[in-house]
């Protein structure tokens, strides 16, 4: 079983890397990109009996810093 964890900076937390990517897109001639947010995707290979609660605990303890980040768990 595989879980995919998406970690993003919270809304309102300035993302200077996303901003740099937005500028670069503009420089390449892609107009109309009004915002870019850059996050992380973490894929976990898990035992078949792993639960969402366990993955949630992993996120809270290590994978995300909930002071500045949000996370979403997806089983694939």
């Amino acid at each position: 079983m595989k879980a995919r964890v998406h970690v993003m900076l919270k809304d309102g937390v300035l993302d200077p890397q996303g901003e740099a990517v937005r500028h670069a897109l503009g420089g390449l001639g892609f107009g109309g990109v009004s915002g870019v947010r850059q996050g992380k995707v973490i894929e976990l290979d898990l035992a078949d009996d792993a639960t969402e609660d366990t993955v949630k605990e992993m996120c809270e303890k290590l994978l995300a810093n909930t002071v500045i980040e949000t996370y979403q768990i997806e089983f694939v």
Partner: peptide
């Protein structure tokens, strides 16, 4: 120390990258 929660807040990438 911020990651352990002993101090509040967090440290992000420098604004100028």
């Amino acid at each position: 120390l911020t990651e352990t929660g002993l101090l509040p807040g967090a440290l992000l990438r420098n604004a100028g990258l």
